[in-house]
């Protein structure tokens, strides 16, 4: 199954607003995606509760995995998303 490691860029981590935006992005892809922090089981990335309770902080590495058609492109999109600080208002 294709997977990618990415470092969380948002200043507050994968917290309220960034987590919400991330889950919305995943749901927009229409694929089953999991997100995992090292040493913990993977969680459904479409689940706000799962993503929030992952407790991924700024600077921590998470692993994304997806299956099916377009999985590689979907993972690229999500890696790009998590590499941006969503706590900074867009200029």
């Amino acid at each position: 199954m294709p997977s990618r490691d990415v470092t969380i860029a948002s200043a507050s981590g994968l917290h309220a607003r960034p987590a919400n935006l991330f889950v919305q992005t995943v749901n927009g892809l229409g694929l089953r995606v999991t997100i995992q922090k090292e040493g913990r089981p993977p969680v459904d990335a479409r689940s706000m509760l799962g993503v929030m309770t992952l407790g991924a902080k700024h600077g921590e590495v998470v692993t994304l995995a997806a299956n099916g058609d377009g999985a590689e492109a979907a993972l690229d999109t999500l890696v790009a998303f998590l590499s941006i600080d969503h706590d900074q208002p867009a200029a």
Binding site: V43, D44, R46, S47, M48, L49, G50
Partner: peptide, 11 residues
């Protein structure tokens, strides 16, 4: 509403 519909909760 979003919490009630969370797939993680049903799982």
């Amino acid at each position: 509403a979003m919490m009630a519909r969370d797939p993680g909760l049903v799982f």
